[in-house]
């Protein structure tokens, strides 16, 4: 009789394992203190979180700190994570809380809006130097600014983070129907705010 054992090297298995692992599995490893698995998750979700904080009007100089804070909280809460919950939902719940805490603690939303306006307007570059596409983007960005915090959060999570409505509902702790209704009205409002040229 003969034993057939897979001859994959430990390294190749480990690499393939990390790549093939679901986020939930990786988070399971993180729960056991595995920093390599944590690094994989950080690299995967860091751009998305930067984008999230950007779209939620976090001042550009603070975004890195908020991303860092979100991942540190993720690591500290790792024991509370259960594999039955979708990892992405868990992460964005944390990120949303970090963002809420940020605005609440610093109470700088108004000044932030002013900073962002400055960023968008980019003093020194005249409108004449911009193409039509930039103008349109600016218009859309400004329109997004007009949304309420509640509506903007739903739009940002759906459009820019690619989260499903059910996930957004879980993150914001609201009914999924409310998410869809907010999204619907937000799009209607944005449509009105955006002026298009023929």
């Amino acid at each position: 009789m003969h034993v057939e054992i897979n001859q994959d090297t430990p390294e190749s298995i480990e690499n393939a394992g990390m790549q093939n692992n679901t986020d939930e599995n990786l988070m399971g490893l993180v729960a056991g203190g595995d920093k390599d698995a944590f690094a994989v998750l950080v690299r995967k979700y860091l751009p998305g979180l930067l984008n999230f904080f950007h779209r939620m009007n976090v001042y550009s100089g603070d975004r890195d700190d908020l991303v860092q804070e979100a991942f540190i909280r993720l690591f500290n809460y790792r024991a509370k994570y259960t594999p039955t919950a979708k990892f992405r939902t868990f992460l964005y719940m944390i990120a949303r809380q970090v963002q809420v805490d940020y605005f609440r603690k610093q109470q700088r939303r108004l000044s932030l809006s002013e900073s962002l306006k400055e960023e968008v307007e980019e003093p020194g570059i005249t409108n004449a130097r911009r193409g039509k596409e930039e103008d349109r983007k600016e218009m859309v960005a400004k329109a997004l600014e007009t949304l309420s915090e509640e509506m903007k959060c739903v739009v940002v999570m759906s459009i820019y983070q690619g989260l499903k409505y059910a996930e957004i509902a879980k993150i914001l702790n609201i009914p999924v129907g409310t998410v869809k209704t907010r999204m619907f009205h937000a799009l209607q409002k944005l449509g009105k705010a955006i002026e298009y040229e023929g």
Binding site: P47, V67, Q68, R136, K137, V140, L144, I194
Partner: peptide, 19 residues
């Protein structure tokens, strides 16, 4: 139109290391 605003936030190894 909203999706056209989407920006790629590239790899930020410096931030990864910091975290």
């Amino acid at each position: 139109e909203l999706k056209s605003l989407d920006e790629e936030h590239g790899a930020r190894e410096d931030l990864v290391e910091k975290i």
